[in-house]
């Protein structure tokens, strides 16, 4: 563990909404190549923490370091540029755009051709666009979506929409992929497939993954390390085995679900 490079670090991060602490004094550390889970009962502040890590909200207090630089107060697109891409709990595709265009949007930040070369249709425009298209098609092939490249994203079946959203995030070439409840709304079979997909992504792309999940089976099955959030506070962290037996975690879950 110690030899691994630290990728993301949150130190005493808090976020207050109108006097209410949605997240308070949270510490979190993720090393390169890890697959980490973030669990917790409903309303524990998981998505809020995600939004803090990806710049949707600015922390009220505390520091977030990504890949060695402090990223507090940066806008989401700046954080994405630094190598953190995410998906959303409620799928957020570009509905009226085609599957291919959805993925191509991810390449905009690395575009080699500027607005003027597009307006004037300079050679750099044609080359840049062709490159993007080619890369996007390659990408869709990996995710088995190539045959659907010209379909309008909102017309895809639910499972494929999830897959496309993950593909789109990966197309941004992130070092860290943040998945917000990727199994939400899936049946057990789909969830198992998703588990395999996540493992495969980690190995294939050699990236770090942070995963919010409700489905304990999924989290315990794929994650190497797990953080548990309850009422805005990090109450436990450790291996799936440690978490499973941690009395605080059991209480947090039982206290809520009984």
């Amino acid at each position: 563990m110690a030899a691994q490079q630290q990728l993301l670090k949150a130190e005493k991060v808090s976020r207050v909404f109108g006097g209410l602490k949605a997240v308070s004094d949270v510490n979190l550390e993720i090393n390169d190549g890890e697959l980490v889970g973030l669990i917790g009962p409903n309303g524990a502040g998981k998505t809020t923490l995600f939004n803090l890590l990806t710049g949707v909200y600015e922390p009220s207090d505390g520091d977030i370091t990504f890949s060695g630089t402090r990223v507090n107060g940066l806008k989401p697109y700046q954080i994405t540029k630094r190598g953190a891409a995410r998906t959303f709990q409620n799928i957020r595709l570009f509905g009226e755009m085609t599957v291919l265009e959805n993925v191509m949007v991810a390449y905009n930040m690395h575009a080699q051709h500027n607005l003027f070369s597009s307006i004037l249709r300079l050679p750099t425009h044609f080359k840049g666009e062709a490159d993007m298209r080619e890369k996007a098609i390659e990408f869709l092939k990996i995710f088995n979506l190539e045959s659907k490249k010209d379909e309008i994203a909102k017309n895809l079946p639910y499972g494929e929409q999830r897959r496309l959203e993950i593909a789109r995030a990966l197309a941004a070439k992130p070092k860290l992929l943040l998945l917000d409840e990727p199994a939400a709304g899936m049946n057990p079979q789909e969830t198992t497939d998703l588990m395999n997909l996540i493992r495969w992504i980690r190995d294939e792309f050699k990236i770090t993954i942070l995963l919010i999940e409700h489905d304990m089976g999924l989290v315990m099955g794929v994650c190497e390390r797990i953080y548990v959030l309850d009422r805005g506070q990090m109450i436990a962290s450790g291996t799936p085995e440690q978490i499973r037996t941690n009395p605080k975690v059991i209480e947090a879950y039982l206290g809520q679900e009984v």
Binding site: V56, K75, Y77, T80, A85, F88, V105, A106, R168, A172
Partner: peptide, 13 residues
């Protein structure tokens, strides 16, 4: 189509 997703995909909205 989706401002929040666009920003998350690195688009300077």
């Amino acid at each position: 189509e989706n401002e929040i997703a666009a920003e998350a995909m690195g688009i300077n909205v």
